[in-house]
Nucleic acid binder design. Structure first.
Lengths: 306, 306
DNA sequence: GTCGATTACGTATTACGTAACAATT
DNA sequence: AATTGTTACGTAATACGTAATCGAC
């Protein structure tokens, strides 16, 4: 218990007033630029205004933070400390705005992750119809595991998987099947076949779009790497298909929806790996929220089954 | 890289304006008290003023944070998040003021730690004369080690030690000697003696003031615990000395400065432990700052040596 | 004279209170 | 009727800009 003699009577009118953000902004700017003139220019205010503000903040702190002499103002040691802390306050203010904005946006956004591109084509319009006013973000990820993790971490609200997810906290519904075809020029030796296997295609160079999700894994596993002509650019892919006679992959789903360039023959691939069954999943607790989506999709399945 | 469809165009005029502290204070108060009326009362402002402020903060955030229905306002989920972050901003603001105030005060305060009370009596007036405008805080600590640590940690700017401190970063100067006396009533068997030892006093009950620093350790070591009548209260000690004829400890320094109740006889104690040599020390780097103090104290020593 | 800061004064903004009103309970 | 929030309007506080002034290099 220290005993205190001769305490300076600096404890007069100490205001319990907080110091406003605009003052701290100006103060931090002064600390950064060194002179009132420079700082005032940067702040787009007049020099006298800044001068007054600095007086005010000093008065509100109740402590000397400036060293004034020779018509120069500078921070003293206490002032430098104050500037550090002031910067933290501004940071906290910015962080608040940032966090609130991001959170609000996340509240108005449905993120959907899919293992393949086709289901997205189908489901995004469904979401737009059923979740009115929501922004929709989609992403293609080639591993179910990452999708499931993303779902649990609430990075995704909906995911399209390759395998049925069997977790207590995840609601998972079968969605649709997709069968892989290879699209050949009429002149191609295999074009007459009723079906082919990956083995039949082992000497054929085939165009593959980069954004096909898990299908890329299937291709890499079943085809020689050198025969895969991977196109990152979607437009370039389209042009290549039009301009060349190179084979490319297609699927029953895509063809049903009218995607079939002229003068090509689509031949189904019989390998079991050339068939995918998609599942759509969300967190169990969100099941109600997306029920209309699941219902719309179930209707879709029934149609498929006919 | 998520692709974003159908982004709601909520990105209009978004101001880069920070949100002022007074708004955050009002907002946090509303979050705390639940209704505008309650919060307005607590804030000592009118309800309409608060209502407008809440509108303003919502507009500045550019995001809905309130749920309004049935002439009730409440926070929505985003609002609760915002309130949490707003509280942090206020905390940062308060912390800034607190830190700056404390630092400033520490700049204007000399803390002195001493192993015994007498040197403080001497040195505090010296400090008041030489360090004009500074507040002086003093503390009695009975272990040199803690004093030295406190000096290095800048808890103390000056310390009075029992032993010379031999550290590179500490400047240490011999200060003054103090010899312990026992003050006895004239009727006491030992009162006639030219000197006594602690051993002579082993059957004597003696008053000891609690705030004597290291002297207490000396007493405890050399006297039976039961014979020490320890007084925590300084006034009570004075009264006991006046009213009773109990022996108590005194010293040459104290007596030279006129501290000697009537009708007592002071007998010196000859044990080596009954003599103390004080040293005054500061950090080497502060030597210049306190040079006037050290000089004043050296004059003191010279006087003593004559 | 230039640069940097302050003082003085007028103005525009704005945060506030009062009063009236609207909507539920 | 009582409680709670909003709208309308006038006022007081205040943050700002312009112009003038001071001081040092």
């Amino acid at each position: 218990m220290p005993i205190c003699y001769n305490g300076i009577n600096d404890s007069y009118t100490m205001g319990d007033t907080m110091i406003e953000i605009y003052l701290l902004e100006q103060f931090v700017a002064f600390a950064k630029y060194g002179t009132l003139l420079r700082a005032a220019e940067e702040l787009h205010i007049s020099q006298p205004a800044l001068s007054r503000s600095m007086k005010k903040i000093e008065e509100q702190l109740g402590v000397q933070i400036f060293h004034r002499q020779n018509s120069k103002v500078s921070l003293n040691e206490t002032g430098r400390l104050a500037a550090d802390y002031a910067a933290r306050v501004l940071q906290a203010d910015r962080e608040m705005i940032e966090m609130v904005t991001v959170f609000d946006r996340s509240q108005r956004t449905i993120s959907i992750g899919s293992c393949a591109p086709f289901p997205l084509q189908e489901i995004i319009p469904v979401l737009q119809d059923n979740m009115i006013g929501m922004a929709i973000t989609s992403e293609i990820i080639d591993e179910d595991e990452r999708l499931v993790t993303g779902l649990k971490n609430r990075i995704y609200q909906l995911v399209i998987l390759n395998e049925k997810a069997e977790h207590d906290d995840i609601f998972c519904q079968r969605y649709i099947d997709e069968k892989l075809y290879v699209t050949l020029p009429q002149s191609h030796p295999l074009a007459e076949r009723a079906s082919v296997s990956f083995d039949d295609l082992k000497d054929t160079r085939i165009l593959v779009s980069a954004g096909v999700g898990f299908w890329m894994n299937v291709c890499r596993k079943n085809m020689p790497e050198d025969n895969l002509l991977i196109q990152k650019n979607h437009d370039a892919m389209g042009e290549l298909i039009e301009a060349s006679s190179l084979p490319f992959f297609n699927s029953d789903c895509m063809m049903e929806r009218g995607y079939m360039p002229p003068d090509r023959i689509a031949v189904p691939i019989i390998d079991s790996e050339a068939k995918a069954t998609y599942y759509i999943a969300c967190l169990s607790e969100d099941k109600r929220k997306y029920s209309s989506v699941f219902n719309a999709v179930r209707g879709n399945i029934i149609r498929e089954n006919f």
